[in-house]
Measured scan of single mutants.
Amino acid sequence: FEIPDDVPLPAGWEMAKTSSGQRYFLNHIDQTTTWQDPRKAMLSQM
């Protein structure tokens, strides 16, 4: 499912887009990137 862009990312995360428009996520805390939206895990725990 798609999460609306107005749902905030967890602390330390940033959303970016590739030149082709694909979204990816940067974790500044552990210096990693992922295609997986970290908000999905956050919302599934609620």
Rank of each mutant, 00 (worst) to 15 (best):
E2I: 10
I29Y: 11
R23P: 12
T32K: 06
Q31E: 04
Q31I: 00
H28K: 10
G21L: 02
P8W: 01
R39G: 02
T33L: 03
E14T: 12
T32S: 11
W13L: 00
E14G: 11
T18K: 04
S20F: 07
K17A: 13
Q36Y: 14
Y24G: 01
D30E: 14
P8D: 09
Q22C: 09
A11N: 14
Y24Q: 02
K17E: 14
W35D: 06
S20I: 10
E2G: 08
D30T: 13
Y24D: 03
T33N: 01
M46V: 11
D5E: 07
N27E: 00
Q22M: 10
G21S: 06
K17P: 04
Y24L: 03
S44Q: 10
N27H: 01
L9P: 09
I29A: 13
N27R: 03
H28A: 09
Q22V: 11
E2T: 11
Y24P: 00
S44V: 09
I29M: 10
Q36E: 04
K40Q: 07
I3V: 05
K40G: 12
V7P: 04
N27C: 13
L43K: 11
T33A: 04
D37V: 02
H28Q: 07
F25R: 01
P4I: 15
D6L: 07
Q45V: 08
D30K: 11
R23N: 12
A41N: 05
M15E: 15
K17F: 15
G12V: 01
T33P: 02
F1C: 15
M46L: 13
P8C: 12
L26G: 03
T18S: 08
M15L: 12
G12Q: 05
Y24S: 01
G21P: 01
G21M: 08
F1Y: 03
I3Q: 00
T18L: 09
D6M: 08
L9V: 09
T34Y: 03
D30H: 06
E14S: 11
T18G: 04
M46G: 11
M46W: 10
K17H: 10
D5K: 10
R39A: 01
Q22K: 09
V7A: 11
L26W: 04
M42Y: 13
A41Y: 10
Y24K: 02
F25T: 03
P4K: 11
D6G: 09
Q22I: 08
A41E: 07
W13H: 00
A11C: 05
A16F: 04
F25I: 00
Q36M: 13
D5V: 07
Q45E: 15
L43S: 12
M15K: 09
I29L: 06
A16K: 11
Q31D: 04
P8Q: 05
Q31V: 02
I3P: 06
